[in-house]
């Protein structure tokens, strides 16, 4: 069993007056894949977006409780820029920037202050190799990232999130806009990176959660019903509602 890296303590979240997340207590373990599952509107994406404080771009977030990252409360963090270089994120839709493939991947590295061309080249290549995009893209590094296909763009985004070597990567339904082949590639990929990085993935597909995650948290109406090893959740759920959801009775 590995150490905990993120710990939710009595986490509440509201969109202004409208509370949608209630009293979450859970642990995310280092170098594991943790899946957040539950019906749409259950608050799983909302909780994920608390972890890198991306809610703070808008005027609505009201946090309560704590999210400890290596023991420090994320919700009290002042330096969000540094926080976000340590906790990366991949979104539902591909979000390639309208700059070259190379610059897309190098973007987060530059944010970390890396300027040395040699190091940049190395890390960009490594990230592209890891996301299985290198063979395709090595001759097209100057091409616009936005010109790639959907699946390629999403792998580019993963490479981009991975390149600065964050400690945690948050995936927000990363395959929901992709075809089955691209989905399989990305699932394999997530399996291989967990040696280096902790993964938290929100998914609407229970099969996906079962295939790739070590631990699974099941949310319903903004509350955490269960958080356990994926095996336990899928074979021996403690809560009747978890069982109902998993067996498709929702």
């Amino acid at each position: 069993m590995t150490n905990s890296i993120i710990e939710f303590k009595n986490l509440d979240f509201s969109y202004k007056q409208n509370q949608v997340v209630f009293n979450i207590n859970a642990i995310i373990r280092e170098n594991q894949v943790t899946a957040f599952i539950g019906p749409s509107g259950c608050g799983k994406s909302t909780i994920l977006r608390c972890i890198n404080r991306i809610h703070d771009l808008y005027d609505y977030p009201v946090y309560g409780g704590e999210i400890l990252f290596h023991g420090e409360d994320i919700l009290k963090e002042k330096d969000l820029i540094t926080l976000r270089t340590r906790i990366g994120m991949v979104f539902q839709k591909p979000t390639a920037f309208p700059i070259s493939i190379y610059e897309n991947v190098a973007y987060g590295l530059r944010m970390k202050g890396i300027k040395d061309k040699k190091i940049l080249d190395e890390k960009v290549e490594l990230a592209l190799r890891n996301s299985a995009l290198w063979d395709f893209a090595k001759d097209k590094l100057k091409q616009l990232g936005t010109e790639l296909s959907g699946g390629q763009q999403q792998r580019l985004c993963i490479a981009r999130a991975l390149a600065p070597e964050p400690e945690v990567i948050l995936f927000d339904e990363p395959t929901s806009a992709l075809d089955p082949v691209s989905t399989a590639q990305i699932e394999n990929f997530i399996q291989t990176i967990k040696k280096k990085v902790t993964v938290v993935i929100v998914t609407h597909s229970m099969q996906q959660a079962a295939r790739i995650s070590d631990r699974t948290a099941f949310f319903l109406d903004g509350e955490l019903l269960e958080c356990d090893t994926t095996d336990n959740i899928f074979t021996n759920p403690q809560d009747q509602r978890t069982e109902d959801y998993i067996s498709g009775r929702f």
Binding site: T82, T85, M89, F91, T95, A161
Partner: peptide, 10 residues
């Protein structure tokens, strides 16, 4: 989401 992902990179 594009804007968010730039912020998410720090």
């Amino acid at each position: 989401v594009i804007r968010e992902s730039a912020f998410a990179l720090g």
